[in-house]
């Protein structure tokens, strides 16, 4: 199957690969996985006092589409408020990357990951 140019670009030059301290109260960590293909994705956000996502990092073990989806999300959410980031839809990701139907689940995984990261951050703040 041929990957789109957008996927190849993110796959070859992934943005924001890395890890933040998950014990930091300003960091939210989302861990998700797709059992059918065994992909594992970690997406982290660093949120400032104004509730804006200052930084985002990811690490994904999976196919090119999963890597591209999470890479794209870290680029997009920087500068967004938590509410804006929570509204990110997998369809927007899939469209931007021109994912074929069999790879749509990779964009779903990335949407789940950002939602999980936001939930983790909020849970930390409420403590």
């Amino acid at each position: 199957m041929a990957y789109s140019e957008q996927v190849i670009d993110h796959y070859e030059n992934p943005r924001n690969v890395g890890k933040m301290d998950d014990k930091d109260a300003s960091v939210g960590t989302g861990m998700v996985g797709a059992p059918a293909c065994g992909d594992v994705m970690r997406l982290q956000i660093k949120v400032n006092e104004a509730g804006i996502i200052e930084d985002a990092k990811f690490k994904t073990y999976g196919c090119g589409s999963a890597i591209a989806s999470s890479s794209l999300v870290t680029e997009w959410v920087k500068g967004m408020s938590l509410d804006q980031a929570a509204e990110l839809k997998n369809t927007t990701i899939a469209e931007e990357l021109a994912l074929p139907p069999v790879k749509i689940h990779c964009s779903v995984l990335a949407e789940d990951a950002i939602k999980a990261a936001i939930a983790d951050y909020k849970q930390k703040q409420s403590k």
Binding site: M31, A34, A36, R42, L109
Partner: peptide
Amino acid sequence: DTHNESSTPIDPMFLMQQMELRE
């Protein structure tokens, strides 16, 4: 059907361990 499910909530501790093993 466990073949085709894409996104299912998985125990985060297990995923963390999977991440570490892959690293």
